[in-house]
Amino acid sequence: MNLSDEYWWKINLELKLRQVSGDGFQTFFSELMGLLHGDDFVKVRPFGSKGDKGCDGYLMSSGQLYQCYGALNGDKGKVDYLVSKMEEDFGKAKSKLPSIMKEWHMVHNLVDGLPIEAVEVLNKLKKDNPSVKFGFVGFEPGSVTSFFQFRFRADSAYSALIFRRAVRLFGRDEGQEEILRRKCNLWCCSCLRQDM
Rank of each mutant, 00 (worst) to 15 (best):
R172F: 14
G74H: 07
Y69K: 12
L35G: 00
V20A: 01
P115V: 12
L114F: 05
G171C: 02
S190F: 13
E174T: 08
D89A: 05
K96T: 13
K53H: 14
G135C: 05
Y58Q: 04
Y7T: 12
K50P: 01
C188P: 03
K10T: 09
V107A: 15
K94Y: 15
E31Q: 06
V121G: 04
R164I: 10
K16D: 00
A93T: 05
I162R: 09
L192R: 02
L32M: 08
V132R: 06
F147T: 07
F170T: 02
Y7F: 13
G54N: 03
K126Q: 13
S95Y: 05
Q67R: 07
C189Q: 10
E31K: 08
G175S: 11
E117T: 13
H105K: 15
Y69E: 03
L161T: 11
G91H: 02
K85S: 04
E6P: 03
N185Y: 12
V119L: 09
Q176E: 13
W8V: 08
L125P: 03
Y66D: 01
R153G: 12
C184N: 14
D23R: 09
G91L: 02
N123G: 02
N185M: 11
D56A: 00
F163A: 12
P141Y: 11
E178I: 09
I116F: 07
S131I: 04
F147K: 03
I100S: 15
G175K: 09
G70T: 06
G70P: 02
A154E: 14
C68T: 00
G74C: 10
W8D: 07
R182I: 10
G48Y: 11
K127G: 06
I116E: 13
E177Y: 09
K92Y: 10
S4K: 13
G74D: 09
R45W: 13
Y69P: 00
R172W: 11
F163D: 05
E31Y: 01
P141I: 06
D155I: 08
R182L: 10
W104S: 03
D155W: 10
F29H: 02
I179A: 06
S156K: 07
K10A: 13
L59A: 03
S95T: 15
L110V: 03
T145K: 15
Q176D: 11
G138D: 12
S30Q: 09
F90Y: 14
Q149F: 04
E140I: 12
R168P: 00
V79G: 08
Y66F: 13
R168H: 06
I11W: 04
G34K: 07
Y58K: 03
K92R: 15
G54P: 11
V20D: 01
D52A: 12
F134L: 06
